[in-house]
Each structure stands twice: as C-alpha cells, then as structure tokens.
Simulated scan of single mutants.
Amino acid sequence: MAKHGKKYAEAIKLIDIAKLYDPEEAIELIKKTATAKFDETVELAVKLGVDPKHADQQVRGAVVLPFGTGKTKRVLVFAKGEKAKEAELAGADFVGAEDIVAKIQGGWTDFDVAVATPDMMALVGRLGKILGPKGLMPNPKVGTVTPDLTRAINEIKAGKIEYRTDKAGNIHAPIGKISFENEKLLKNFQALIDILIKVKPAAAKGQYMRNISVSTTMGPGIRVNPLKAPGKKE
C-alpha cells in the first residue's frame, strides 16, 4: 500500500470522506488541500455506468474548456502544400509529412497533440503502434483529423481536452490549475460534466454518472454529489 507524506495526511484531515460535496464546496476545498510548491493540476475523475467492452457504450470525444487547462500544448500537424502553410500560420509548433514520420519512427514524440488532414492518414497510419499507445494518434472522433486546420489548432491552443473511458468506465481529465480562480475551475468542471451527459450512450442502462471526484496532482480526492453536478439529468 502506498505511503503518503505528512502534508497529504494533514490535507486529508480537512475532508469528510463520507460526504458527497456540492461542486462549489469541492472546488473550494481542493484549494485548502493543495500543498505542493508548484502549480498543481486540478483533475476530474468520473465513473460512468457504461461497459466499454461494447462499442456502443464507449464514451470518447473532446471539449474546449472555457478557461483552458493552464498548459500550452505543443501541436504537431501532418500536412503538405497549402495546408502546411495554413498550419504554420495558425500557430502549429511542428509541421511536416514524410520527414516528421521518419523523425517519430526514430523515437521523437516531443509534442502533446497531433493533427492531420484526411489525405495524410495513409502516411500517418504507419505510426499507429507508436502514437496509439501514447494517445497521440490523430482521430476524427476528437477533431484531430480534419481539413480545417486553423480551427483545430486554435481550439487546442485555447484549451481543448480529450476524454475517453478506460476499461473500467472511468474518465480522467484535467480541468485547470490550482492557481485558477474558483469560478474558472467550476466553469471548466461544468463544461466537461455537461458534455459527458450530452454524449450519454443510448445503450447505457441504470445510473449513468455513478461517482465524481476532484483532486490536485499531489492531493487527496474529494467526492462530488452526482445529483448536484451541473446539467444532471437521469
């Protein structure tokens, strides 16, 4: 069993582990439990009532957080010709085609998000075994395979995040930094919860949002009442 330090032990004393907090209370409380010397990431974890083994119950997509994540993402774009120029003008950090593919095959993956135009996917497909396990493979479901590179890059730079259920039906995603104002964290929290409700699979049965919690990078989790989550509908 993992051992926690003195600061973690002190932080967890502030939490009533038997209580389900309102979102506003939870956001306020994580400010008190953040003890690290760096600007910790605030993370949202949601347990959904889905069975990801079935394709029609998988939950995956992307959402632009109103106030971003507090981190500037490095964007790689696979494109040629005019589309490559468009990507550069839109602020992509890396742009290329065969040259970038060769570089990645050589072990380079120093970027956070990869975007590709549809015509490049035959080339990019060679990188599936490298980018797939890292969650970096361009995918039309999350808007990273698109002819509209300007929009895709702008959204990513503005704070677009991807969400995806793991094998147990959980979703983990960043919703900002501990230095954010409470209201900004709450708005980001609302944006992710609202989109998860919107994309609820028709095949999902019973209670959809089963558990919600927020935490910081180094802090304990704080449980949020699913019935008080913004936009909650069952």
Rank of each mutant, 00 (worst) to 15 (best):
I171Y: 09
G61V: 09
N139H: 09
K232E: 05
V113S: 12
D119W: 10
V224R: 00
V95F: 02
L65R: 03
P174R: 00
K232N: 14
V145H: 02
V50G: 12
N154R: 14
N170K: 06
T146P: 03
R60A: 13
K177T: 14
Y21P: 10
K141T: 10
D56R: 14
A97L: 06
A152N: 12
A97W: 04
G128F: 04
E234L: 07
E183C: 01
T41A: 15
A203Q: 06
T35I: 04
G91M: 12
G49P: 03
G5P: 06
I161Y: 02
K167H: 12
A90S: 14
T117S: 12
R74V: 14
L149T: 08
A102H: 02
A45H: 10
K134Q: 15
G221P: 05
A102I: 00
K200N: 04
N170Y: 11
T144M: 08
V64E: 10
G96R: 04
A62G: 10
L123W: 00
E82W: 02
G70K: 12
S179D: 08
A204T: 06
A158T: 02
K103L: 14
D112I: 14
A2Q: 13
A92P: 00
R74K: 15
A36K: 11
L149I: 07
K80C: 00
T109N: 08
A173E: 09
V113T: 11
I197Y: 03
S179N: 09
L131M: 10
D148Y: 10
P147D: 14
G107T: 08
P66Q: 01
L48I: 07
R210K: 15
R164N: 05
K103W: 12
K167A: 15
N139S: 13
G128P: 09
I12M: 11
I178C: 01
A18T: 15
P138S: 10
P220I: 00
G135I: 02
F38W: 09
L196E: 02
V63C: 08
V77M: 03
I193L: 15
A34N: 11
I100M: 08
K205A: 04
F38M: 05
M209W: 03
Q105A: 02
R164K: 15
P226W: 01
I30L: 13
M209H: 01
D119N: 14
I212Y: 08
F78D: 01
V142K: 06
L136I: 07
D93N: 12
N170V: 05
A62L: 06
N211I: 00
T144H: 10
A202H: 05
G132F: 09
L149M: 07
D51C: 09
I153A: 07
N154G: 00
G231E: 05
D93E: 12
K3M: 13
D194Q: 13
D56T: 09
I171N: 07
D194E: 15
A79C: 03
K3I: 15
I153L: 09
P66W: 02
P147M: 04
D110P: 12
P52Y: 09
I153R: 07
G70Q: 08
V142L: 07
K187N: 13
K184M: 11
E155H: 08
A92M: 02
V95D: 08
Y8E: 01
S179P: 03
A84K: 02
I30P: 01
D22Y: 13
I17Q: 11
R74L: 07
K83T: 00
D110Q: 11
E155A: 14
K6D: 13
A36D: 13
T35W: 05
L186A: 04
V46K: 01
G221S: 13
G49Q: 03
